[in-house]
Design a protein around this nucleic acid. Structure first.
Lengths: 334, 334
DNA sequence: TTGAAAGCGCTAACAC
DNA sequence: GTGTTAGCGCTTTCAA
């Protein structure tokens, strides 16, 4: 029945071939000198007999687990964003090619107990954080622990390897473009600033205004919107302040804003234009489609994972790696 | 720096306390007889000195990994459904309480190589499958491998532990209710029947009709819709056939159908009523809200994980566990 | 180029 | 109730 789960050990291989375990081990790992002939003999034998080294034993001997930890947000509202799924899938993809597996750690609201456990229990060789908050307990813990780790996103914490999209430039660019296309009073409907990414987006927005000679008008700046109610209120105020374009800081905000406008009978782009700093399916399917920034989360996961492996190999890596973006101009700003 | 990662071993503890490793081991595991006094002594010592057994060594000695595998769909369209996130979070929750961790395995379209690897490499003690197809390669492999596993969803495969919602009864009930509320020609816009759940939903729909003395009208039955185009065509045909209520097999279909109706200027529930066999945020936020079935995916994950642990402990478990549902009657069918 | 032997940290007979 | 001992399956000095 369980013929697929192999139970043949390195000793079996050694015995069958009339050589020592050491030699078999060397043939497999490539460490140490070994005759090409014996090497081939071993390699073919283990292939034919489907021998797989036991990772527990390997791990015990070498102090490696062949696992990396993936830290995802535990609070459902965040966790369900396709962004994290795609990142994770990018991480898994690379991990697999390196013969590593990915262990999940759900961290909600600063509760790092699980993360702590997998680190202290030595269940992972390194960790990738799916997101970062401005004051991130998990990052602080990881730094203190000494385990190699990489974060997706940005942090103010020093000496942390970060992989992120170039949000500041992306947001600056899309803001400038909108202004060049004739927008006079772009209003920003922003999310909570505990997310570093929102800080960056805010910065990009401001730089965009500045680059086009526009002031940062407090009447057009609505930050820290969390609930649907917050957003609706901000939209009302922005409209009252005479905005000609609502720039939403992310897709969630954008969808709520869009619904709100429709409910109020305000037409897009007729009465007011709409753009978003982050893309999602829903916006792409919206009529008219929404002008937005586009990133590649899976690539983010890929790069984060590759970077972590470099760190594990003792290679030097840049503290910050910025990935690209695309500006998608659509009907919502025509 | 890495003061948090402990490196103290069972021998250190034994030596410090002037007792043997065995005794320490016993104090921790609770296996074998041990004096209450020594037990306490050990327990306090390891707590104070933050000793953690090395799982690799434990694993090597006991042949357990303290990991379970979570098999999620690798194709993004599926993977991003909140359903899987919530299930996974339910699984992690229980696993954590049992001192287990969760290893991810992404399986796309019958490609079981990664799953195979984690099983053959003995990186997990058991596996939970996040979904099942009608002819599921992964399930077949797992059966053959002999590793304990549990599937979320249903399968036709024999001797497989399944945890599922009671889709047949749920769909029968909502269909009956709609008919009792006056619907005469409910049309089913169905998804692909490679998903066992869709078979069950179809079955429930038919039973619902039957229970109210209505025939299964082929003109009102649209199955195997995959693309947006499929769905739109089906909606057109159903409307042309004079349906008075579109029943969508899942939330994805429902959203597309809703958009389509709006675009065509067909009002809900005025011109046609709409219901769905699966709930999602978007439908809850739709105006009017959509009548739908509601399940609890996290609970599904909880139960699946608890069941797997029973299997691992050698306990007998039912081959099929069915969880409940709720019918949410909303404005879309008034 | 190959092998013997020690050891990674823990568990589990089996003695005492 | 506690200790001795022999592994679990692999890597890695150190010799040969």
């Amino acid at each position: 029945m369980s013929e697929v789960r192999n139970n043949i050990t390195i000793s079996d291989v050694a015995e069958a071939l009339g050589i020592s375990k050491t030699t078999v081990s060397r043939a497999i790992s490539g460490n140490g000198r070994i005759g090409e002939e014996t090497r081939q003999k071993v390699l073919t034998y283990i292939k034919e007999n489907n021998y797989k080294p036991n990772p527990m034993a390997q791990g015990l001997a070498t102090q490696r687990t062949y696992n990396i930890g993936w830290v995802a947000p535990g609070d459902s509202s965040m966790a369900e964003l396709p962004f994290f799924q795609r990142c994770m899938s990018g991480v898994c993809e690379i991990a697999t090619t390196m013969n590593y597996d990915v262990l999940i750690s759900l961290v909600s609201e600063g509760n790092v107990t699980h993360l702590k456990r997998i680190v202290e229990n030595k269940k992972v060789d390194g960790v990738i954080m799916g997101r970062t908050l401005v004051d991130d307990k998990a990052v602080k813990y990881l730094k203190k622990s000494g385990i190699p780790f990489v974060v997706i996103g940005s942090t103010h914490e020093k000496k942390v390897i970060q992989i992120d999209n170039d949000h500041v430039n992306a947001c600056r660019e899309i803001t400038s473009i909108l202004i060049l296309k004739g927008i006079k009073k772009p209003a920003l409907i922003g999310g909570h600033l505990i997310h570093v990414v929102n800080e960056s987006r805010l910065k990009g927005y401001k730089e965009g205004l500045e680059s086009q000679g526009l002031p940062v008008n407090p009447e057009l700046l609505y930050l820290n919107n969390v609930s649907e109610r917050d957003i609706c209120k901000s939209v009302d105020s922005a409209i009252a302040a005479g905005t000609d374009c609502l720039i939403c800081m992310d897709d969630g905000i954008c969808n709520i804003a869009l619904n709100k406008l429709r409910k109020d009978g305000i037409s897009v782009p007729g009465d007011v234009k709409v753009a978003s700093f982050y893309n999602s399916e829903i916006q792409a399917n919206h009529q008219p489609a929404v002008t937005t920034l586009q990133y590649d989360p899976k690539e983010l996961g890929n790069v984060a994972c590759r970077t972590l492996f470099k760190v594990l190999d003792g290679e030097k890596v840049p503290e910050k790696t910025l990935l690209g973006y695309e500006v998608l101009l659509k009907g919502s700003t025509f």
